[in-house]
Design a protein around this nucleic acid. Structure first.
Lengths: 336, 336
DNA sequence: CTCGGGTGCGAAAACGTTGCGATACTGAAT
DNA sequence: ATTCAGTATCGCAACGTTTTCGCACCCGAG
């Protein structure tokens, strides 16, 4: 076994600075008989070694942690969310424990475990939260902030999301402006709030121009490439063929582009495609995908900041915050 | 392993920790007269032995944590690595604190902070580690496992990677088998070990057939789409034009495809393109990218399992482990 | 009584502080 | 140029303080 772990000590600093222990001590105590150049060098090393005076070591720098829980580790969006959350947490500083939704999210064990581990709060990403869980965390005094909750949480549950409705409207309006009238819509998984909001944005943009969506131009499924592919195959077989497709996320949209290619249709000449999220692959696809950008990193930042405020005991003026989405027009859309 | 018939006892923990029974007792009872380093060591052993106080049967869930530190939160590979690490950690169970490389990674403060926070180990992803840091963590008795370290770490530093050399060879051999002879190579950032290994695999495959790489067909740069784009623009302007490009990662490869398109060249009819990593976007690109798959999730799993073994006090038979890469042939390569 | 565990206390080590002297350097007087 | 007093800088050694940990002893259950 190697030797004991050692904490910051004057001797270590002295050795590295090439001076004696007393000299370092004099720097710490603000004595004057140290050359300013030596003093500067030692002070830098003191910081680097994280030296703390022995007496006041009692104020234990107990590390603070919050937990960030994802429903899945597969969505690339989650990395950006985590990135933003990390940035915001670094300012406090608070550390982040990552996890996935536990096996039995309904039991009280989850909240108790977090309490026992001294987690100060929880950010729940694209997951479900029901009133029972919410109460359990409240009982343990653990604030919870959700990001894009799957279900519609209670009105008290703080949540951070994006303007999915506006984004859906903007994308649809963009297609309408280009002259498209038959716009196929690939819905997200049934019940997911973000998907529902996008769908309603689609409808809202249509009805704003006195149009109504054709139920025959709707397909639903999970947020996957495969869903987009198969849904687009069906939608593009409708007569008359839709001239544009709006997919509920980028994975679906890229699948739709692939489906169009399979059918011998050119994007955007024969059919325009719009996605949602603006993942990396959207920028790199052929053609580059017109899509609605979600500010994932910013959502992570905001969620963390709100959680930290809740931990500090502040009240949130509004439990729900929606960050602006932005329509990014690339090459997958063209006039009808 | 020796027999462990008895319930965990203070004496056993004390013996293994090299302290007296009373000292362990003091840790259990939260006395203050125990050095924090000693306390951390004993606490870890208590958890590992599954010690439960005599009176209360209920096992108190003391949370154990390890830290996973990334150099950047932008690489999509990192999410898969984290995913695998989480799976392996869940089995123990151990929780994962994520972080990024601190401002001053050279100072001893990092190791000391981790020790103070009772982190039991560290996984360092695509980062640099030098002898000094390695010693500092060793001094704190914090095992470190690296994943794809940027530099060539000391021979003692445990590291997990992929067979980058073999992958580079396999991809190049694939192109050679298709009849390509002028194969442009887009290198990774200078100094990165993974990039160097891929480059050498390329050279090895060439020389195996008695060929040598043309220095005029080499371009280097970061692992980005933009690097791939601009490098490919230059490479494809060479005379005679290379019939294939091998990029050191998928981002570069997708940039190269875009560059080919810009020049009016068809992929794969006019130029074949191979990437490295097999990110999602590779499957979804047009055409789908032939690439060398790295088992990122598996790398995360293996790294975590090795770290947990080091924490348990086991020795690793071999500090370096390379997991197999796999050539995924899609549609971006064709006969010359 | 034995075994597992808890605790007061003392000793030793670790850590930091301080007085003082050694050394080098400066600048002015010789 | 040399000397020499003055000063800045820093280490030595001794000292004071706190931390740490085991010994010895205690308790309670079986």
């Amino acid at each position: 076994m190697s030797r004991e772990p050692q904490r910051a000590t004057l001797a270590a600093v002295a050795r590295e600075a090439g001076v004696s222990v007393p000299t370092v001590s004099k720097v710490v105590n603000g004595r004057t008989d140290v050359a300013s150049e030596t003093r500067a060098r030692i002070e830098a090393l003191l910081v680097r070694h994280g030296y703390v005076a022995r007496g006041q070591g009692g104020a234990q720098p107990v590390s603070r942690t919050v937990e960030v829980v994802f429903d899945t580790m597969r969505s690339p969006n989650n990395l950006d969310i985590l990135h933003g959350a990390l940035e915001a947490a670094a300012a406090e500083p608070v550390e982040i424990v990552v996890g996935t939704v536990p096996e039995d999210p309904l039991g009280a064990a989850w909240a108790r475990r977090m309490s026992a581990a001294h987690r100060e709060g929880l950010i729940l990403v694209t997951s479900e939260i029901n009133t029972q869980q919410w109460r359990q965390f409240a009982e343990q005094n653990i604030p919870v902030v959700t990001i894009d909750p799957i279900n519609l949480p209670g009105p008290d549950v703080p949540s951070v999301g994006a303007t999915n409705f506006n984004g859906g409207m903007a994308a649809t309006a963009h297609l309408l402006d280009l002259g498209h009238r038959r716009i196929g819509f690939i819905e997200g998984p049934p019940g997911a709030m973000v998907a529902i909001a996008r769908l309603h944005g689609y409808h809202a943009a249509l009805s704003q121009r006195g149009l109504t969506g054709d139920p025959a131009l709707m397909m639903a499924g999970p947020f996957t490439f495969e869903t987009g592919f198969s849904a687009a195959l069906e939608l593009l077989a409708r007569e008359p063929r839709p001239t544009a497709l709006f997919a509920s996320n980028d994975g679906q949209a890229l699948g739709a582009i692939e489906a169009a290619r399979t059918l011998g249709l050119r994007v955007p000449e024969d059919v325009s495609v719009v996605g949602f999220d603006d993942i990396n692959a959207a920028r790199w696809s052929a053609p580059p995908l017109t899509t609605v950008r979600q500010p994932f990193a910013e959502m992570g930042r905001v969620a963390m900041r709100r959680l930290l405020r809740l931990i500090a005991g502040d009240e949130l003026a509004s439990p729900r915050v929606e960050l602006a989405t932005q329509l990014i027009i690339r090459k997958s859309t063209a006039p009808a």
